[in-house]
Simulated assay, not measured.
Amino acid sequence: MPTLRDIMTPNPVTVDPQATLQEVATLMLEQDIGAVLVMENDRPTGIITDRDIVVRAVAYGHDSGTPVTDYTTGDVFTLDANTSVEDAADEMGRQQVRRIPVTENGKVVGIVSLGDLAVRANSDADEEALKGVSVPSENHNS
């Protein structure tokens, strides 16, 4: 049974809380990614996605020099690298998140997206997660 370690993207791109929207957007462009973890003292304190930047900042005409923490989704939910893909999919559905940082011994070692479940896992796990993520919620972690 595959675990998150088997499908995660290792070494996710991270920034500190003082990073600006422009710095994060530039990283996303350079790395061809859609999400960046905000880390403080080796702990994920937030996550920001390309959609967060567009919907929460650009749409309102906010300055690109604004600190990223003004637009991050806080209370980052993480899972251990040894979590099964099926359990992760269930949890993503329950938490209604599309990306989850993966930890090992309390340190972030990777990130898994709903797309990773769909592309890399040989199971119906992505379908179960998608069902949960597709349910409207007030908690948005794109």
Rank of each mutant, 00 (worst) to 15 (best):
R94P: 14
R99T: 00
F77N: 01
D52Q: 14
D50G: 07
I53Q: 07
A59M: 04
V54Y: 13
A89Q: 00
P67F: 04
V102N: 01
D90G: 01
T73P: 05
T72R: 12
I100R: 01
I53W: 08
V76Y: 08
R51A: 07
V68M: 06
V68R: 09
R98I: 13
R98E: 15
R98Q: 15
T78V: 05
Y71A: 01
P67I: 09
N82S: 14
Y60F: 13
H62C: 07
R56V: 03
D63K: 03
D52I: 13
P67D: 04
Q96T: 15
G74M: 14
A81Y: 02
E86C: 11
R98V: 14
R98M: 14
V68I: 15
A57R: 10
E91T: 14
D87P: 00
A57I: 12
V55H: 05
V54K: 14
T83M: 02
A88C: 06
V76H: 09
A57M: 09
D87N: 06
T73M: 06
P67N: 03
Y60A: 12
Q95F: 07
R94K: 15
V85R: 02
T73G: 07
F77R: 01
A89M: 02
Y60E: 14
Y71S: 00
S84Y: 05
V85M: 03
R98F: 14
Q95S: 12
